[in-house]
Simulated scan of single mutants.
Amino acid sequence: MKAHLFTDADNTLWDTDTVFATAQLEMLREVEKLTGRTAPEDEDQGLAFLRTIDQRIATEHPDHLRYPPALLAQGLALVLEGERVEGAVARVTAPNLAPTNAFEPAQSRFLDAIRRLPPLRKGVREGLLAVTRARIPVMIVTEERAERCRKFATEHQLDGLIDEIISVRKTHEAYANLKRKAGPGRCFMVGDQMDRDIVAAVAAGFSTFYFPGGFAPYWASELDSSETTRIDRFDAIVPEILAAARIRHSN
């Protein structure tokens, strides 16, 4: 019996949240200087303050979490200047939003900052090595650009452990299509986001592993996790996948 491993990349293979948190706090400090107003002094509280606005914008914007970072800078400025979060989000996500250059430098610096190489998460190299040695194909499924994902995989020397990188909006239909293309055998999906990585994959007939990271959007907090296996390191997937492929795992 064959097995096929699909895995998310950001916050699953590598800890993108650490890089984003640093970049977001840098943006917040920059917007504070622009407005002359300050967010909560504690960095954790500052990050929570920022991410409340970030997630609200993502909820309303058609590009979801991939909306232009300048909108976050503008939303932060509005809230720091006294506008309620709901009103600020409505303004920056309005289809007739007037373009402004005031936050372009903050956006450019943010985009530069998130290009930093994020560290691998626990057990990633070990897990991918074990699965690859068993000749089980490994596909990365990401909503990010495939080029960016390939760059990080290369810098972490994971190239030889990845068969394909697929950039696609993660929906039930997308997973069903991936499963159909994989052919016979059991399909596994590993990810850190309940809605995009787990629920949609389960609906398409995947077996899933939920590998929570440092960031979980508020809208996914109430989703049912009873049909997935929660893991605390990536290589915890290995025994079940090798068993599904009828390969005995040996150290």
Rank of each mutant, 00 (worst) to 15 (best):
Y210W: 15
A244K: 01
H249P: 02
K179G: 11
R186Q: 14
Y210L: 14
F209E: 10
V199S: 10
P217T: 05
I247P: 05
T208L: 12
Y218E: 07
E222Q: 14
K170H: 05
E240A: 15
H172D: 05
A220S: 15
A203T: 10
A174C: 03
A245N: 05
M194V: 13
V190W: 00
D224R: 10
F215Q: 01
A174G: 02
T228Y: 03
G205H: 07
M189G: 04
H172C: 04
M189H: 04
K181R: 15
T208D: 04
G185K: 06
G214K: 14
S207C: 07
L242C: 05
L178K: 02
A176G: 14
A243K: 12
C187V: 02
S207K: 12
Y218A: 11
D235E: 11
A200K: 13
V238Y: 06
R233H: 14
T208W: 09
V238T: 07
I198T: 08
L178Q: 12
A236Y: 02
Y218S: 07
S167V: 02
P217Y: 11
K179L: 13
V168L: 13
W219Q: 10
T229E: 12
A243P: 00
G191K: 08
F215V: 03
V202S: 02
I241C: 07
D224Y: 13
Y218V: 06
D195N: 11
V238N: 08
A200E: 14
Y218F: 13
F209C: 11
R180S: 12
P239W: 08
S207R: 13
N177C: 06
R248W: 03
H249C: 01
V168W: 02
T228I: 05
P217V: 13
G183I: 01
A236T: 07
A203K: 15
R230H: 11
Y218M: 01
L178R: 10
T171C: 08
D192Y: 08
M189K: 01
G213N: 01
R248A: 15
M194R: 12
R180V: 00
F188T: 09
I237V: 15
G213D: 06
R196N: 15
P184D: 13
F206Q: 08
